[in-house]
Nucleic acid binder design. Structure first.
Lengths: 342, 342
DNA sequence: TAATCTTACTATAACGTTTTCGTAAATAAA
DNA sequence: TTTATTTACGAAAACGTTATAGTAAGATTA
């Protein structure tokens, strides 16, 4: 339990604390000889300067926070993977905070982060987030913020997303081209950026093919699995049920699978299904799941890169910018094949 | 960009810095009246004491590190979820570090963490980790450590795992009871704790039923997906191929699914499959996947709880202890049903 | 009334760095 | 030789807290 610090090193070497500090930072003020002596002792004793003392003095922490709704979710896990890879490369540290999709938690986390613990934040908002005072306050304290995936456009900063509108359109078009005539959209929450953009793409797709939109085909599922299950079941047992379903997120698609199993509905014969998903094993599902796959890892990487760039240059704020990375539609069995005509 | 600190508050209120500090900590030395004044101004200005200044003075950071091989993995994502939930409850902060299953990275991360950035570590080692000098050094600096899942028994501390041996035995027994006679074991790496315990359970299962173990049926897959694919393919195309497969981790099972697809082997008719997995949608696979499901969330929670307990009591070390949480075997289609007799 | 004890504060040192400023010695320029 | 410059270092303040020790004023006791 030997805690080493500059003072100990200095005393050991018979030089001053400032000399040791400067030597370790490779300052021009220190002779090569002294640097070598200092360095070798530091290495020998495995000395690592105390980052908090350093942060205090330097007014920068080299630490960021990642705030996401959940982590047991393929998209966010991959995005965090991307974030962490860049952070490690650039020598930043990553604190993780989960909101569990609760606005209150998101707010409370943001408030705590005003303490100077971090230099920047990467954030995906909750489905409940309707206002952004808490985010504005955070930025007021000089903390840089970059949104990814679930963004708030009211806040001026960089936002890294995928092409939700275009992908929503393609997904809908894909279902139509495969014979679907009545297409439902499974929504998570209309105040979620990804959701209303994907829905807009869906509407555009219907419009493009002159299909009139039936309001009952837009099903707002909440984040509660049981409730979502019931609503999707209601949708699929309704007298005039859809023959195509576009799920805005992976979870709703898997719930739809389970509902179809219970109702003995055949995918894709009875109902064709496609969804946004980063499931690696989509191909192993029964039937294999057609997906719009987001570049989750890259989204994380890109968001982190932008943040670190601005932090390293000590910018006071990040200009408004939308970085859009393309998703790809991977057609598989769940959305293709014969539609059963009754 | 108004940075508030104790000095500003003190000046504003016409009291000393120490009074403000003590008032915020609800010290008995401060009158109720003063406390109220201080608190209300602090709230109004949204003051959060600088955690690094506080850490420096108090010699505790209320921050822990989580070191795991990967995060885009159901088990680890769930475990981190559990860790974070307890951390948030107890007011700890969670730094995340990924080793990408590289020993060198693990070592380097441990070295950097000797700086005093954290009070404790929760760790799952890499498949490459063969020695533990880097971990010992970390503990030498007074940093508490709790292992979870992938542990090193040479290190004296608490270890939270699942009942790998017993579960390995049950899985093997389950395959045997469903008619499998030649059972293969897909291993990740023999120097991984979870792996050799599960394998021991597998061997015990064979022994219990008087089945002799054929060495070629233990396939050491690496962490490289492509290589694992080839080895599993070799196994399943061998002249005397197994009729049962026990995969030690989820990923190897999904690779086995893909191999069977390529080879047109039927699961479970040609080969029965079971694996350790935390896949939520195991039931939606084709065929549905029989799993041994680990209490991943609880493992994370338990490991974090133990760590925080010892940290809060300022213990210098954590006594050696093995906490074992039970997994449950969920039989599904992949391991049951008729074996095709040729 | 004097001595003691509370109450409610303040001053100050300390945590481990970094950085500014100062300076002696060595070297170069005049 | 004198003056100016460079080199290589050290002293000390500062970052924002917390905790120890000290102390006036008021309350209590003898």
């Amino acid at each position: 339990m030997t805690k080493i610090n500059l003072k100990i090193l200095a005393h050991e070497l018979g030089v001053s604390v400032s000399t040791v500090s400067k030597a370790l930072q490779d300052s021009y003020e220190i002779s090569q000889e002294t640097k070598d002596k200092v360095r070798s002792l530091a290495r020998k004793l495995n000395f690592q300067p105390n980052p908090y003392a350093s942060s205090l003095r330097r007014h920068q922490t080299r630490t960021i926070a990642v705030i996401v709704p959940e982590i047991a979710n393929n998209f966010f896990a991959l995005a965090i993977n991307g974030i962490e890879s860049i952070a490690q490369e650039k020598g930043y540290h990553v604190l993780i905070y989960l909101t569990h999709d609760s606005y209150e938690k998101e707010k409370s986390i943001c408030e705590h982060l005003q303490s100077g613990r971090i230099d920047g934040v990467l954030m995906s908002v909750t489905t409940e987030t309707q206002e952004y005072e808490h985010i504005a306050k955070l930025m007021d304290k000089g903390i840089l913020l970059v949104f990814f995936d679930r963004v708030r456009h009211e806040i001026e900063t960089a936002k890294v997303t995928t092409d939700d509108f275009v992908s929503g359109l393609s997904a809908t078009e894909h279902l139509i081209q495969n014979g679907a005539k009545r297409i439902a959209y499974l929504s998570l929450s209309p105040n979620l950026s990804i959701d209303y953009k994907r829905k807009a793409g869906y509407l555009e797709g219907l419009h493009k093919y002159n299909i009139s939109q039936a309001p009952e085909l837009i099903v707002e599922c909440t984040n509660n699995d049981e409730e979502a299950y019931q609503r999707i079941k209601a949708l699929l047992t309704s007298p005039h049920r859809p023959d195509g379903v576009f799920a805005s997120v992976e979870k709703l698609a898997t719930i739809a699978y389970a509902v179809c199993q219970e109702l003995s509905l055949q995918i894709p014969q009875d109902v064709k299904l496609i969804c946004f998903s980063n499931l690696k094993i989509a191909a192993l599902l029964s039937p294999s799941l057609s997906t719009i796959t987001q570049p989750a890892f890259e989204i994380g990487k890109e968001a982190a890169s932008i943040l670190f760039q601005h932090l390293d240059r000590k910018r006071a704020s990040i200009p408004n910018e939308n970085i859009v990375l393309k998703s790809i539609l991977v057609p598989r069995a769940s959305s293709q094949g014969e539609t059963l005509m009754i």
